[in-house]
């Protein structure tokens, strides 16, 4: 396969959207949390929990969208725990986040073993099927590349638009952004910084869990222990890369997914015979670090990110 052939194949671009989808949900979730002033390092564990919860719910008989809802609620529950510890109590967001990832991951693995004690390989479910958008999916090339995705992928793009609209066009979004920039001003308006931040963490965590559920309900049809594999940490890098803006973060997720899809195909070229496959697998993580380095000077970090707000303190 030639390098040029990779970019002109519709299946490549379809793969880009598929790989980007879980990142899009989780990155939007993290972005909401951070815009409100809370770094949510529970993301990796919440994605694991969401992937499992959605899958096990569908395995138990719920419809696919029911699985998505269960994943979302699971994420929101974990988000509630995170937010109680990190917002009103103002505990170190680093420690709480890492603790939440450890807790959510181990709870997930424990539940898996309790529910499915005897299985050697996890059962499969009937996952989301590609949904051809009438008309658009008939367009040559573009149709196959962009308009033959699963419903969850389309939903991801709707979520980006929704998050952008709420953040920049509604009073609620203004309050969320202000909570991350100058919480004292929010409190002076008579609004509860604690409430806004907790709400942002809970909703954001719900989105992260849906990102995880995309893996089990759409990308694959089963649950594996290592399936999230650092995607959560990559999403944290994507939020920085996207300068805390939904549109730019979406662009970052797509760029990242394009790179990932490219390296997978590169492994099948003559180059893949010479270069060890681990080098290709490293690229997403290396790229994330590079993105952080490149953006470090330019990014406009929310001013109150990781700064707890205690009313009465001035």
């Amino acid at each position: 396969m030639d390098l040029f052939d990779i970019f002109v194949s519709a299946s490549f671009w379809a793969a880009v959207l598929r790989i980007a989808s879980p990142l899009i949900f989780a990155t939007m979730g993290e972005l909401i949390c951070e815009r409100a002033g809370v770094l949510n390092l529970g993301i990796e564990g919440i994605m694991v929990a969401g992937a499992f919860a959605g899958w096990i719910a569908v395995w138990a008989g719920l419809p696919l969208w029911g699985g998505v809802a269960v994943a979302m609620l699971t994420g929101m529950g974990l988000g509630l725990v995170h937010s109680v510890l990190s917002v009103p109590f103002g505990l170190s967001q680093h420690v709480v986040g890492v603790g939440m990832t450890l807790l959510a991951t181990s709870l997930t693995f424990y539940t898996y073993r309790v529910v499915l004690p005897e299985v050697s390989s996890p059962p499969k479910i009937e996952a989301f099927q590609p949904l051809d958008i009438p008309g658009l999916s008939q367009i040559p090339f573009l149709g196959e590349a962009l308009f033959s995705q699963t419903a969850l992928t389309y939903a991801g793009f709707v979520v980006v638009a929704l998050v952008a609209w709420v953040l920049y066009r509604t009073p609620l979004g203004l309050a969320v952004r202000a909570a991350g920039e100058s919480p004292a001003a929010v409190a002076a308006q008579g609004l509860s910084v604690t409430g806004i931040r907790m709400g942002a963490v809970i909703v954001g965590s719900g989105l992260m869990a849906v990102g995880g559920a995309f893996l089990t309900l759409s990308a694959f049809d089963s649950f594996f222990f290592e399936m999230v594999n650092g995607r959560g940490w990559i999403c944290i890098a994507l939020v920085v890369f996207g300068a805390w803006k939904p549109g730019k973060a979406l662009l970052g997720a797509l760029l990242f997914a394009a790179f990932d899809a490219f390296q997978i195909r590169l492994q099948q070229t003559p180059m893949g015979q010479v270069v060890p496959y681990q080098v290709f697998l490293m690229m997403p993580y290396v790229l994330s670090i590079l993105a952080l380095v490149v953006m470090s000077r330019r990014a406009e970090v929310p001013k109150a990110l990781m700064v707890p707000f205690n009313k009465g303190e001035r």
Binding site: L85, F89, L91, G99, L102, L103, S106, Y110, R113
Partner: peptide, 21 residues
């Protein structure tokens, strides 16, 4: 399942930072 140990330790971590606060 042995993951009980991991859950207990993650809980211990979170509860301990809260207790210290």
């Amino acid at each position: 399942p042995t993951y009980l140990a991991d859950i207990m330790l993650a809980s211990a971590l979170l509860l301990m930072v809260l207790a210290i606060l």
